[in-house]
């Protein structure tokens, strides 16, 4: 069971503002999904190494070279608000 308070807390962590209706709905739906997921508790995983990905590659390294990837204005084309060649955002902090 996941309460409305927990839904609100998780929404805050995920930087989502949810409507009252969404909070109700997600509380119900996530509870149902988590009940289903709880069957994992049947499995004995003592000593089992967690698997992060399917292939055994580790620490893929490359030379640390400076390369020109993009022109600044190419990247800024997608910016919702650009000014003086920078990304403009609303006020941060006081």
């Amino acid at each position: 069971m996941i309460t409305k308070e927990q839904v609100e807390h998780v929404a805050k962590l995920a930087r989502l503002s949810l409507t009252g209706e969404e909070i109700d709905l997600y509380s119900k739906q996530l509870s149902k999904i988590l009940d289903y997921i709880d069957q994992l508790n049947e499995v004995n995983t003592k000593g089992v190494e967690p698997m992060t990905q399917p292939i055994p590659t580790v620490n893929v390294m490359r030379e640390d070279l400076v390369k020109k990837q993009f022109a600044r204005d190419e990247i800024l084309k997608n910016a919702p608000h650009e000014e003086y060649g920078f990304f403009r955002v609303p006020k941060i902090g006081e």
Partner: peptide, 18 residues
Amino acid sequence: RQEGFGAEVKRRIMLGTY
């Protein structure tokens, strides 16, 4: 994020964050 994501994407972000 509220405006931009649809219901299933939000649901999965919520589940994953949880």
